[in-house]
Design a protein around this nucleic acid. Structure first.
Lengths: 222, 222
DNA sequence: CATAAATGATAGTAATACTATTATATTTGC
DNA sequence: GCAAATATAATAGTATTACTATCATTTATG
């Protein structure tokens, strides 16, 4: 097993892919293929082919493509939470922690070599392009009860609590951080594909600056 | 023809649905069905059935479901632009206009009886639930060139310019308003389905307040 | 070594996303 | 008011997708 293990709710798979070699190959190739062709064009048949196995084998791990995406995205949030916890240890003010959190959301990720079957950089790019698809469905309420969105909620809570350390009277910590996190994603997407919707022609640094300013100005006491 | 006509780029249909009775029935029923069953579960066959016509007839107006969604969403933004223009005439400060724009984004819409075949309230709810699906695809760059996202871009520009009237030095008008507009959507969705991601248990008024504060604090000179 | 479990190979089904064809209305131009 | 053009209805057909099922084979485990 890995030195580091990100836990993902058992509702997000049929059979735990982290426990077998085939499972890990499914994760690894799914990320690669989904990034390459996009969620809509990916099929379990293509994954089966890519891992030199079969469609049926992929179905043994995940009920369907939607669950696979939800798994990958929850893995990403779980991993980001670990990263944040690590980095926050070295920082002493809530403001510095918030700033660093925004950087982690936006700046490119290095591969964590403790987890060789997941390419975190590619996964981050995939989350940017696919994230809202896991909740923008008619099944959202049922899936919410299954814990499909826990990863995201936990990060929002963590950041919201930091904001309340700065200003205990701030009224919208949940709204603010669900907004900031999804803006972190969508600004990356817009910069790449719809540049008229962002002012970050100069790169991700500008996104970080925009979000940091927006966050701190929102929570400041006045 | 209608007293009021919202123009949507000709790239967003095969045959203009506003020009025929059948076309209008397609629009009307599509909104109703998509709202009811969600984008994923809607098919042209079901639309054909609902309008007491056929699948083939729907294909004569729209190339596919994706184009239909893009049409409806562009229609919505076009209509919102008209609404904003109307309301801005009565307002004299950029700040008041921004505040009113946020209300229009968030508060429930009344049916405009000049356009009987479109139920604006339902359409608004549909945009909240489906909007990101039109750009989160691998075809985004090609469709961007076809003008699939013009409606959204125009609203962002308009609001960005209002912000620059308040503070000509503000550096991120496009990023801010693409963020505010998509937050207006996602906060409505979260309030309904994932309440832990918002602080608007009390209703849409809180969303308006949150977004207004965030906007004005961001653009203020300091 | 025996048994269970995981995987591979293959087949099959219902639904989807179209395309094509032809017949029948309906509109429009003269 | 009629012919020609156009729009729509009715139907059929195809390739792909999203699964489910079955059974043989390999691999792990006690």
């Amino acid at each position: 097993m890995n030195a580091l293990n990100i836990s993902v709710s058992a509702k997000l798979y049929n059979k735990n892919p982290e426990e077998t070699d085939l499972g890990k190959r499914i994760l690894s190739k799914s990320i690669e293929l989904m990034e390459e062709m996009g969620y809509e064009h990916l099929t379990f048949k293509k994954i089966g082919l890519a891992i030199e196995s079969t469609e049926a084998s992929v179905y043994r791990y995940f009920q369907n493509k939607h669950q696979l995406l939800a798994y990958l995205i929850n893995w990403y949030w779980g991993w980001l939470e670990v990263k944040m916890a690590q980095e926050f240890m070295m920082l002493n003010s809530a403001e510095d922690k918030l700033k660093r959190a925004i950087e982690l959301l936006v700046l490119p990720m290095d591969e964590d070599e403790r987890i060789p079957h997941i390419d975190e950089g590619t996964l981050q790019h995939l989350v940017v392009a696919e994230y809202p698809k896991i909740y923008l469905t008619k099944e959202v309420d049922a899936e919410n009860e299954e814990g499909y969105f826990l990863g995201y909620k936990r990060i929002c809570d963590t950041l919201g609590n930091l904001a309340l350390q700065i200003n205990p009277d701030y009224k919208y910590p949940h709204s603010l951080f669900s907004t900031v996190i999804s803006a972190a994603q969508s600004q990356q997407f817009f910069t790449e594909h719809l540049p008229r919707l962002s002012d970050a022609a100069t790169g991700r640094g500008a996104i970080v600056e925009f979000l940091t300013e927006m966050t701190l100005n929102s929570i400041q006491k006045r």
